[in-house]
Design a protein around this nucleic acid. Structure first.
Lengths: 337, 337
DNA sequence: CGACCTGGTGTTATCGCTAACATCACCGGC
DNA sequence: GCCGGTGATGTTAGCGATAACACCAGGTCG
């Protein structure tokens, strides 16, 4: 029985190509001072042996891994899930693998533990998706010098941060409703401790202020369709409500259903705008006008900031904001006369 | 300016504790032959220096990483997303980090590339979520000897495989409807090239056969609410349809809406059962009776099989099946008389 | 025409750890 | 009281890469 021989190492390639292992290393790392002919010979040997550099050995000598750690909530919410996907993709393109540390609840201890697990792994940098203040608090425990970028984190904290411009998106959504002729716009908000929700409330309010419209009380909910339904049951009974901006599409879905049950037609009687542009939004009844965050752009910016921090040694604390885009469909119309 | 000194290594701990680095290694790896007193001294030194073993060095000498690669579709579908979460959690508990390689489409080339990326990283094992035949095909390209477990893959392929028992779940759902008194049960299916969908069709059919009920034609759709709505519009017009088993909850949601629009009340006129038990299912109107797969159990089984393969060297090709559970809510009633 | 650079290559040390072997004190048994 | 076993520890040799330096041929230049 033939014993499983170990994977080929650099010296094996070197021997086959008739050069030293160092030359192989130079070829691999694209050093300039290698004769073209030698380079080709080495590359042929690499291919022939199906040689793959041992990352552990490289990491040991350079002190750097090609791994990025992401801490995210153990959730199936559309926003975070999309973001994570997009980030993995961007990182893979840049030659980094992504190790994900899920966390069940966004509390300080869990997040700190997840960050520690990543530091144990000696990741090159860490991304934390920290959409609530409890999550953002945990970042205080991370020692300086660890490259770290926060996504959807606390805008008032001096960390490197990338977010969707919640305010601008909410402003645009609200303005769109006002410009359709509505006197004012009601708002069903996500949980108050989420920065995303808070930012959307701010944007909504400033659009109303800018237009001189009355500011109705905020209806605070969570992110679920169920909560949107409950909010809708309430708002449907109020004839003065002709336009509603919902903090996400699932809320809008629940609200749509409540309106339909109460006989208030959308958009004829009530106009509705959502946020997120989930894949189903175009199939809602009616197709939902909503605000689409560019998760791919957020992912790219996040990776960019992180790579910069990695080369800096984690000193820069820039922030970047990604503008979302209003997607107009059929849930908005002028108010009934 | 003080230069950033390098991270403490084993020798630093050894020096502080007054022992050799090998003794530190023994403490770290729980070797038996260490005096209790020495062990405590070493542990104190570890804590004092905030020492973390260098995984790259360990991986270099042992030839093994503590990394598991997962290949999954770049999707936000509830099932795959939940599974991934659960798996990450289970792996973390077992001391493994999880590196995710997303793939945009489930075709052979993309999956093969993702698997190669993981092999470059020298992961200890790979998990592929391969719910379609195109994905399962790609596994033929993976050399034997690589520990690999497929989730939701092709039941007819001799790889190590873990799946939800689609057939049993569908059987139970269908039986539940028949036992409520319905003469037969219609079925709205997911995409035909998904193993999950095919398994559910089989289970549904064998329940009908077992009960001697007529087998109506399958309505094939995709996984979306939009498709469920379209299917519902058709089925709602057919008075003989009193019971429908949908291949997932989103299909059921769309169907529910179509029924309601056409004035067919659920469950009074038509009974409906879904599959997945998405978080919102309990808030549908009416709350949906559905089949809940135990993703945590699938994750545990997957990890178990993979760890076994890792120690075996990837020779065993067992398969495990996880039974799902019927969750009864309010969308099922006896047929109208 | 010898000193000096410079591009191409090889040699050696080193990263931090584990495996294997070496050492040493101490024990009980004949 | 010498011998072999055993438990606790130390010493040495790699794992497979990169970094730093050494080397050597050939061209340039004063």
């Amino acid at each position: 029985m033939e014993k499983t021989s170990r994977d080929p190492a650099m010296t094996d390639v070197a021997r086959l190509a008739g050069v030293s292992h160092q030359t192989v290393s130079r070829v691999l790392n694209n050093h300039p001072n290698v004769r073209e002919q030698t380079r080709l010979r080495v590359q042929a040997a690499i291919k022939e042996l199906d040689y793959r550099p041992n990352r552990a050995a490289r990491a040991l000598v350079t002190g750097k891994t090609q791994l990025i750690g992401v801490v995210a909530q153990n959730s199936t919410l559309y926003g975070p899930a999309s973001l994570l996907s997009a980030f993995e993709e961007a990182a893979a393109e840049a030659g980094f693998a992504v190790s994900v540390g899920r966390v069940k609840v966004l509390d300080r201890a869990s997040i700190a533990a997840a960050v520690e697990r990543h530091r144990d792994q000696r990741v090159a940098g860490i991304v934390v998706i920290a959409p609530t203040s409890s999550a953002a608090d945990a970042l205080a425990d991370v020692p300086a010098g660890v490259p770290l970028v926060t996504v959807d984190g606390d805008p008032d904290r001096p960390t490197a941060l990338v977010t969707v411009d919640q305010g601008a998106g909410a402003f645009e959504a609200t303005m769109h409703l006002l410009q359709a002729g509505h006197e004012t716009v009601w708002h069903v908000s996500g949980p108050a401790d989420w920065f995303d929700a808070a930012g959307r409330v701010d944007g909504w309010r400033s659009a109303l202020d800018a237009a001189g419209a009355e500011v109705p009380p905020v209806v605070t909910a969570d992110w679920s369709a169920a909560a949107g339904y409950r909010a809708g049951q309430m708002l449907a009974r109020m004839p003065e409500v002709t336009a509603v901006f919902c903090s996400n599409d699932h809320l809008a879905l629940g609200l749509l259903r409540a309106m339909s049950e109460r006989g208030r037609r959308v958009p004829h009687d009530v106009s509705v705008v959502g946020f997120d542009d989930v894949p189903e939004a175009a199939y809602f009844i009616p197709p939902l006008t909503t605000v689409r965050p560019d998760f791919a752009a957020v992912a790219r910016e996040t990776l960019g900031l992180l790579l910069q921090q990695i080369s800096d040694g984690g000193t820069t604390a820039q922030r970047r904001t990604v503008a979302p885009k209003l997607v107009k469909r059929e849930s908005v119309a002028p108010p009934p006369r």
